[in-house]
Each structure stands twice: as C-alpha cells, then as structure tokens.
C-alpha cells in the first residue's frame, strides 16, 4: 500500500498525462478550475451529491466524474480507504496541483491581469 505522498504522485501523474483543465491561462483561472474540479472529484469519490444545475458546474462535473471514474478503476487502493482518508488525500492532491500549476509555476503569463 503506497503512502500518501506516493498516492498523490500517482494521482498527479494521471492528471498531467490525461487532462487539460489544470492548464488554463491565468492564475485565477487555474485556481478556480482546481478548486471546482478537484473539489467535485473528492465528493464523487466519497459518494456525495454534487450540484450540476448551472452550466458552469456541469462542465466541472464532466471533468470531475471522468477523473473519479479513472481513479477508482486504476488505483485499487481507493476501495480500502474511508471517506475521511479520501478527503485528506484529495486535499493533499489539491495543494500539490495548486503548487505545480500556480503557486510554484514558472509561467510568467499567469500574472497577466487580462486574457
């Protein structure tokens, strides 16, 4: 059973190789994407309801549900985790993705105030 750091690395690798939503063009875009998509993914992995009544939320949910499905399918250690553990893991993942794509990013365009 991998430890939490190894798990975060595996989840991060999947996002980096298969997803595009984490690389929107500005810092605020990226934070918003990370918060909504990873937040919803965490809820879906814990079997909780998500609100998709607004088009914007439905779009986040599309990416989040893809992520949640693939995580369950590819990483069987998810099935042995409690909801609290999943939340803790997803929080760590969120911090890591925020760091790689925004806070620690070397992309100078992220700070551009306009699109």
């Amino acid at each position: 059973m991998p430890d939490i750091n190894e798990k975060v690395a595996q989840l991060e690798n999947f996002i980096m190789k298969k997803c595009l939503w984490q690389f929107h063009s500005r810092a605020w875009d990226r934070k918003r994407q990370n918060e909504n998509i990873l937040g919803m993914t965490a809820k879906l992995l814990c079997g909780e309801e998500v609100d998709t009544s607004k088009p914007e939320d439905k779009c986040y949910w599309v990416d989040a549900s893809y992520l949640a499905e693939n995580y369950r399918e590819r990483f069987d250690w998810f099935s042995t985790m409690s909801n609290d553990e999943i939340k803790e893991l997803m929080q760590a993942l969120r911090e890591r993705i925020d760091f790689v794509t925004v806070d620690g990013s070397l992309n100078e365009e992220l700070k551009d105030p306009r699109y």
């Binding site: 595009l20 779009c59 893809y66």
Partner: peptide, 29 residues
C-alpha cells in the same frame, strides 16, 4: 464564458483513448 456564461471544455481529438474520453465528456455534459 465571461460575457455569455458558456462553459469551456478542453478536449483532445487525436488518439483512440483521448478521443473516446472527449466524446464521452461532451455526451455526459
């Protein structure tokens, strides 16, 4: 998105698996 509230879904049209995921996502929406 900003002016008309239309969400943006980034997709990949190349390759079996990325394309399949992209079509699924659009369908799921």
């Amino acid at each position: 998105r900003v002016r008309y509230g239309i969400p943006r879904l980034d997709i990949d049209g190349f390759g079996f698996e990325p394309l399949a995921s992209s079509l699924r996502k659009v369908g799921r929406f």
